[in-house]
């Protein structure tokens, strides 16, 4: 029934709006405080609009202490490399498991299941020791290599490929394509929904990851955004919240902007990776 109680609806909307306000409050204060002078912040007034606009000064400080451009670039490079490796390695493997018969399929499935259980936190100690002895700390290699294999990607693509009709592959074989050709020209073009979903999942996860970069990177030149922000906070002794908020704003913005622009894809991606996972 489409009839709505007006009272019920009013309560519902009030609840939703109040909740939304609470959830958005940090963003509102972040934007507001990034434009306030140190002195104004210390009056602890609740006014959201700065009395004098200090945005330029705060942003200048943020860009001055830590190379923000370098941080964002590192983030893009690391996330981009990780995603490319993950997809290039996972798709052929998932295809073989889904559509080809071979003896190791069961063993591989067991490995994937095991892998899904093990987060980076559990493997970081030996990996750190290994990267340390190979003198690879403070490098893109150290940041990217452990994530080049994503068992989750294999798992997600495996489920997606299983749902693809076998006839499609048989037809491609009769047309004379090699198995690699089938992967590139039949499977990948039909797997875009899964690939985009995984891209969102992967980029969000690795853009935000602090644990592993914190372990292998001590040199600012290789810092990813979260790690860079940590460095910035350390350099910014005291409570210069204006500059700090300006820095957080810069670092948060790319992913938030991407999310706002491609909301539908984000939600679909999260739903797909979430529910498959």
């Amino acid at each position: 029934m489409t009839q709505t109680f007006n009272l019920g609806r009013a309560i519902r909307l009030t609840l939703l709006s109040l909740g939304a306000l609470i959830f958005l409050a940090p963003y509102i204060f972040m934007i507001s405080t990034a434009g306030k002078a140190q002195s104004e912040i210390f009056t602890s007034s609740l006014s959201l609009i700065p009395t004098q606009f200090f945005y330029l000064e705060n942003f200048a400080k943020a860009f001055g202490r830590v190379s923000m451009g370098q941080l964002l670039w590192n983030g893009v490079v690391v996330c981009g490399l990780i995603f490319v490796f993950q997809v290039v390695i996972a798709i052929p493997c998932a295809y073989a498991m889904a559509k080809l018969k071979f003896g190791a399929a069961r063993l591989l499935m067991a490995l994937v299941m095991l892998g899904l259980l093990v987060p980076i936190h559990a493997t970081s100690l030996p990996l750190y020791v290994a990267f340390d002895s190979a003198a690879l700390l403070n490098s893109y290699t150290a940041l990217v290599a452990p994530f080049s294999i994503s068992v989750f990607a294999i798992f997600l693509f495996l489920q997606f490929f299983r749902a693809m009709p076998d006839d499609l592959i048989h037809a491609a074989r009769l047309d004379g394509m090699s198995e690699l050709g089938i992967v590139m020209r039949v499977i990948v073009p039909n797997a875009w929904p899964a690939i985009t979903a995984f891209a969102i999942f992967s980029v969000v996860a690795h853009w935000n990851d602090l644990y592993w970069p914190l372990i292998v990177v001590s040199n600012q030149a290789y810092a990813t955004p979260p790690l860079g922000l940590l460095f910035f906070r350390a350099a910014e002794a005291g409570d210069d919240y204006g500059a700090l908020m300006a820095a957080t704003l810069i670092i948060t913005l790319p992913l938030v902007a991407a999310f706002l622009l491609a909301q539908k894809r984000f939600v679909e991606g999260i739903t797909m990776t979430g529910l498959k996972g």
């Binding site: 958005l24 210390f42 969000v204 935000n208 602090l210 940590l230 919240y241 670092i251 938030v256």
Partner: peptide, 26 residues
Amino acid sequence: TAYFLPVASLLVAMATVWQYLLHPTI
């Protein structure tokens, strides 16, 4: 969007914002 925004935001950055929000004096 409003409720999902924190999921898409850099947690380290937003934690910093919370630190300011929860600052005992200012």
